[in-house]
Design a binder for these strands. Structure first.
Lengths: 208, 208
DNA sequence: TTGACACGCATAGGACTCCTATTTATCGTT
DNA sequence: AACGATAAATAGGAGTCCTATGCGTGTCAA
């Protein structure tokens, strides 16, 4: 039993809580956890294909197909042929879906409060540690491509002297701090492999 | 979008990965994630009641009852009346169950490796941050009682001068370091509320 | 002791998740 | 035109997960 096991245990416990919370919302929203995930993704990131959704929520394509069918029955999403590929279909969130997602607290208050209770310094380290782990998982092919700052074309780590806001985002052309580092940014654009390596090295070595 | 949201996002992503991994094992082991969780719990912590299992894996009692029935069909567990309560039943893992659990890697390698890639200092902070969050969730009643050092009768934080092994466990009567702090200890004994507060205060204030 | 109530568990019923395997259309290519 | 590859749906089946409810016991007070 090493530290890694204990860390994994903790992550699993929180994961369990998150899933249980998602189910507890089901009665109020009429959406299962899987359906809610799909809906949130469609509302926040725009139309997507079934297979892309499947990868996003880490299930097989037929499972995603099931959930999509359930959401269509409920009138939350519509399907239109993808003009770029006759085999594919694009799923669109309806107005009702946008409304439902807006009403829905994405993260349980208890978790946000638990995170807020940590020292700011701890929050920084925690966020960075999560990024590193997610990147490690990604490099090992364990999870699909993510949309975090560290792999984004627009990200320039430690470009500024200001210790509070050392990073720069070329997309919004603004400086920002560790606390605003994103793990799932809507404006993420995947950088090429070489750039990623360079950015990552710069980002991590300065993290001490 | 504050840091807390980003942290929650990261935790959720890892939770998703853990669940997907648990499913991917299903074909080899013949156990669904829920069944595997129950079995691991029974093997590691000994006989338990249905309702206790339900709380442990964060599902309702009928759901636990379902999974228990599935495990009984598969011959992994047996049910005996609880001598202490005629209404209750104790579930016992069979020899086959112990064997199956021993074969089963509880945590995905990729996750352990991802944790191992972090600096030791980062691992410490991460583990402590997870503990704090789990304790915060517990205090808010969001998750059931946990079995971490911080709430254990046997735990004496920062009793030793040795910076590498400042804590003491009265159960094994030995000093240990942050890296060995447990989130789910088999020998955990819940301390009373006052002791917990005191222990916790001592544990957290010295964490800077 | 005898209700009245609380509790532990099982069942019923229903929607959905989740898998593998397969089918149906397209796509790209040769 | 014919090939294999890909996007999605379908088929089939076990299991998850919920709420509501039924059944038998534990508990405690009248």
């Amino acid at each position: 039993m090493a530290t890694h096991d204990h860390i994994a245990t903790g992550l699993a416990k929180i994961g369990l809580f998150l899933r249980a919370h998602a189910w507890s919302r089901a009665e109020a929203t009429g959406l299962t956890p899987t359906q809610a995930q799909i809906l949130v993704h469609l509302v926040r990131r725009g139309p997507a294909r079934v297979s892309a959704l499947a990868a996003e929520i880490a299930v097989t394509q037929p499972t995603a197909s099931d959930s999509v069918a359930a959401l269509m029955r409920k009138g939350y999403i519509g399907k239109r042929p993808d003009p770029e590929d006759g085999r594919a279909a694009k799923l669109h969130a309806s107005a009702a879906a946008r409304h439902a997602v807006a009403e829905m607290a994405v993260w349980p208050d208890a978790l946000l409060e638990a995170a807020a209770d940590l020292d700011p310094a701890e929050q920084d380290v925690l966020l960075k540690a999560l990024m590193k782990m997610i990147r490690a998982l990604q490099l090992r092919g364990a999870i699909p491509v993510q949309r975090m700052c560290a792999t984004c074309q627009h990200f320039r780590p430690y470009q500024h002297a200001d210790a509070a806001k050392p990073h720069h985002c070329a997309f919004v052309d603004a400086a920002f701090g560790n606390a605003a580092l994103r793990l799932d940014c809507g404006d993420h654009v995947e950088a090429d492999a070489a750039t990623q390596r360079e950015t990552w090295a710069c980002f991590t070595q300065a993290s001490a």
